[in-house]
């Protein structure tokens, strides 16, 4: 067993490089990064267009919606939970925001109302999981159906269009050549990183996933942390809905189907353990970009869309298989 005694001065430098290397190697980020590099090299060899700035920005913009949803999903999965309701909540939030704007409500208030709906669903999920003691997969499966139903009820099943023109800025605007949705996504990632890595709340999120009972018995208010985590997932989902509604310039009650699966796939590809406790928000960003590049690359290569699903699934399985020993 190693001990503290071997920190003699002449070995400090040697130890530092060694530590940096082992830290990178042992970090949960190593494999996702390797995957990202590998797939990028592969794609740039396969297609000349891939490495162009416009194409790369395009990829980033395409992944921004799932990317934002995956932030809340990461928090939830880190506690050992899951949130299946995100896709439906995107649709509900979008239709309500669009409906309120079209109905003449102050657009800023409409946006706030949309965020409120997202957070509200998150709080509902969180309360049922944390205080109701119900399994997250069942709770969010049920609220997934409810949110979709509300969206269809509210809109009568039709898209709500006729949004004010400035609304398109969130989805299609650019600041110094970088698409606004990408900037929003990166901003939310930065915020999430700070919360998860630099606050006690973040530590408790990891701790609950690592060992919920131990965390509770050490005096952490576990139920409150869980409630917040699902609320955060609702919030990021609503932010994603703002971007999507802006892209489509309409509220689509049938939008967002399958988003929960893409988000979960990105989180897991990013090295976060589906059992919770291990992983990182940066990993999720890498996972999101990895999935985006894969989509983009397969399109550039002209692969049949039917076949693309099979390839993506196989790559996810392969990634989890390679990474499984780390979470054993």
């Amino acid at each position: 067993m190693p001990s503290t005694e071997n920190a003699s001065p002449e070995r400090v430098g040697e130890q530092f490089t060694f530590r940096l290397w082992t830290r990178l190697r042992q970090s949960d980020l190593a494999l996702p990064l390797l995957g990202l590099v590998a797939i990028s090299v592969l794609m740039s060899l396969a297609s000349d267009n891939f490495l162009q700035f416009s194409n790369l920005m395009n990829v980033m913009r395409q992944v921004s919606i799932i990317g934002i949803i995956a932030i809340g999903m990461t928090c939830v999965i880190l506690t050992g939970g899951i949130d299946l309701s995100v896709g439906s909540v995107v649709a509900l939030t979008g239709t309500i925001m669009a409906g309120l704007m079209v109905g003449g409500l102050d657009p800023a208030l409409a946006l706030l109302a949309g965020l409120g709906v997202g957070v509200g669903f998150g709080v509902l999920n969180g309360a049922l999981v944390a205080f109701g003691g119900m399994p997250p997969i069942i709770v969010t499966l049920a609220t997934m159906g409810m949110a979709r139903g509300f969206a269809l009820m509210y809109s009568g099943g039709y898209p709500i269009s006729g949004l004010p023109g400035w609304m398109s800025w969130f989805g299609s605007g650019r600041i110094v050549g970088i698409p606004v949705p990408v900037l929003i996504m990166l901003a939310v990632y930065l915020l999430a990183w700070v919360v998860l890595e630099r606050t006690s709340f973040g530590r408790h999120v990891y701790a609950i996933g690592g060992n919920e009972r131990a965390t509770r018995l050490s005096g952490v208010k576990v139920d409150r942390v869980k409630l917040f985590v699902y609320a955060i997932s609702g919030l990021t989902t609503a932010v994603a809905a703002v971007v999507m509604t802006s892209r489509l310039m309409s509220g689509q009650p049938s939008a967002g189907v399958g988003f929960e699966l893409d988000a979960i796939a990105a989180v897991v590809l990013g090295g976060t353990s589906i059992m919770g406790g291990r992983g990182s928000i940066i990993g999720t960003l890498i996972g999101v970009i990895l999935l985006g590049i894969l989509n983009n690359g397969l399109n550039l290569m002209g692969v049949d869309p039917y076949v693309q699903g099979v390839i993506k699934g196989a790559i996810i399985l392969l990634a989890i298989y390679i990474g499984r020993s780390r979470h054993a």
């Binding site: 630099r198 006690s200 530590r203 408790h204 005096g219």
Partner: peptide, 28 residues
């Protein structure tokens, strides 16, 4: 019931102590 196994020694020890290490209200 006691350990957060994937955590470091440091995080395991300070697990229920973070309230004391606040700066700017939120940050550790």
């Amino acid at each position: 019931e006691g350990l957060i196994v994937p955590f470091s020694v440091r995080h395991n020890i300070s697990l229920n102590n973070y309230g004391k290490y606040r700066k700017l209200g939120f940050f550790i």
